[in-house]
Write a protein that binds this DNA or RNA. Structure first.
Lengths: 203, 203
DNA sequence: GTCTATATCGGGATAGAC
DNA sequence: GTCTATCCCGATATAGAC
């Protein structure tokens, strides 16, 4: 964000909505709260977006895109497989560190209203076929053991996402409650995940 | 459930509450809906449990316990490490297959009200120290590469849970939308996860 | 475009009869 | 213990002045 920027009212609203929705979820969010956060009043929300639902839709797509890993882009780079993985995990975990509450929000809203995904399937495509062929190829060359793209992707994303979406469990149970330990744990994740995945793929 | 069982009203209520809360989340659930599901009326809900919040608390602990992996029990069995992992993943994924919407619910509610975890920290302890010592031991014997218990557990749980909590994404994007493919994918998970983890731990 | 005031309704909670 | 009827607040949404 630039320093002297002047936000339009619409931007103020969407910024506020984004924040409150992520924090509270659709059902838990209050229009009043969003208005306060934006420094305006409720009526204006409805002037710009006709309903809570429409306001939600207006922000959800962007949030979803942010959550969706940029698998395609990274995978198409012309670097060895292990480097691809390193780069992907590093980028993705960085995004999560900057938006720690994003995964819980996206996953919950999608679970509650799976239809929403239809509004959102556009250019967000992941195309596992490309990755699949690549993996097959690498396996034939003997660089890695064979694994289907879908399973590999779900494995990696699951490992990246869980510490965030399951923070209370990880911090409270696995790490004994300490918030410092949790921070430390997160810092180690990138490396640990990369290591783990690469080991799993080695012959 | 036995065939001729006679449910007490309280059981009818908690069963209904469990179902509706898991489906809709706390904020999305309606007392009316729960009453309908239980075949009674709203007033009776308040007669048994004084408030929505208290009703929620009454069911949440059990659900949470179900979600928490029984790491301790399985890990204390006197079998080789790879068998432990096999058994754990198998048990845990089976539970998820039987309760596919449970993880999204638990993770969302805990994220929204992390204090709730205090009500729930009782005998659910996981004790990673035991597992940690075990892993250290196995590593020293040269059976596996060393890995911290916390990271291993988070890795495994993340891989198990993500296909469920992220169903719309997995099915919609990674698998192209087909619900058959998704079912097939789930069936493969147990084996794929076990394989992946064991490979990652091998020297 | 932005505000205040208000309509409208849904949903949690209670009163009270049976 | 279980029901019907009702209270009452909070939240979305709209009307209308400026």
């Amino acid at each position: 964000m630039a320093l002297k920027e002047i936000k339009t009212t619409e931007q103020k609203i969407t910024d506020a909505a984004r924040k409150v929705f992520i924090e509270k979820g659709f059902d838990g969010a209050r229009m009043q709260h969003i208005a306060n956060e934006a420094g305006i009043n409720k009526a204006l929300l409805h002037y710009y977006f006709r309903s809570k639902e429409k306001l939600f839709d207006a922000i959800f797509y962007d949030i979803f895109r942010q959550f969706m890993p940029k698998v395609g882009i990274i995978m198409s780079a012309d670097v060895p497989i292990f480097d691809k993985i390193r780069v992907f995990v590093s980028h993705y975990v960085d995004m999560l560190l900057n938006n720690p509450f994003l995964p819980a929000f996206v996953l919950h809203e999608l679970s509650r209203r799976p239809e929403k995904i239809l509004n959102v399937i556009k250019d967000t495509g992941v195309n596992p076929e490309v990755l699949n062929n690549f993996l097959k190829n690498e396996a034939e060359k003997g660089h890695i053991v064979y694994i289907e793209a879908a399973h590999l992707m779900v494995n990696i994303i699951g490992m990246c996402v869980f510490p965030f979406v399951g923070r209370p469990i990880v911090q409270g149970f696995i790490l004994g409650g300490s918030s410092e330990k949790y921070g430390q744990f997160l810092n180690e994740r990138k490396e640990k995940i990369t290591e783990f995945v690469i080991n799993a793929l080695k012959k």
